[in-house]
Amino acid sequence: MPIFLPVAGLSINLILLVGVGALVGFLSGLFGVGGGFLLTPILMMIGIPPTVAAASDSCQIVAASSSGVGAHFRLGNVDIRMGIVSLLGGLSGAAFGVHLLKFLRALGDADLAITLAFIIMLGGTGTYMVVESLRSLRRGSLVRKTHRAGRAQGFMSNLPLQMAFPRSRVQHSALLPFFLCVLVGILATVMGVGGGFMIVPAMVYLLRMPTHIAVGTSLFQILFTCAGVTYMQATTNFTVDLVLALLLAVGSTIGAQIGARTSRFLRGDQLMILLGTMALLVTAKMAYSIIRTPPSLLAAIGH
């Protein structure tokens, strides 16, 4: 069944859009990632102009993450305090990232830097997640992790602005999640993704938050970041297609519900292995796409 997208200015199969949304929403609910790294390329593949795909993607992430946050909130998986500190850090990083991106573009070869950064970050994170989770599954990581955490604890406890995060059952200096998310915000802006892929492992491995709470809190942060991005895209580039976003959202909100429920049936190790494997698959796909000779040397802006 076809539907006409008014801002994109083309028609597309309605069921295809809802299906794509459902798949990405499922991953969003399961892993706490926005899904931008997957959805934008898929939309471009099915013929949506890149600028409209990226902007409408942000809008649908608002819907999907609202649904995911609601479900995770009821499950007690959202650490609001950590979420607010992360959001402030993420927004500051994003603001700095915009200027960094402008600087990189002025230098030239920014696209190469971005592509390589994407492959290194995503590939590195994915490998680390898979290896670490497999190791802990095999050896029973509780004692070893406690020892390892004990060494880092000394440094972290000496930092100023110590703050308790009761929901996550951790105590850290507020500076730690803030600057962590500044870094993620910078990378996310430069690489053009929401950043959930990096926030969740950072919260789990560096802030030692329980995986399920890291997922819920990450969604909370992504919700507000993407709301801001959607508004800016609509007012500056006029590229938010609300019909497209809502159709994707119908699929993704339902998918996010299923994803959030499914996450309860999986242990943290298993979630991390799955997320890591996905990161590695996307990395492999990206690496292949830049090595193979393209059929046309021209690409629409955004590819």
Binding site: Q60, S66, Y231, A234, A249, T253
Partner: peptide, 22 residues
């Protein structure tokens, strides 16, 4: 106005479906 509407509608859709599902 369109940008604001897009954000609000998306949030309402997300929370609405979540409420319905629960």
């Amino acid at each position: 106005l369109y940008g604001l509407m897009a954000v609000i509608v998306a949030m309402l859709a997300g929370f609405g479906i979540d409420l319905l599902a629960s």
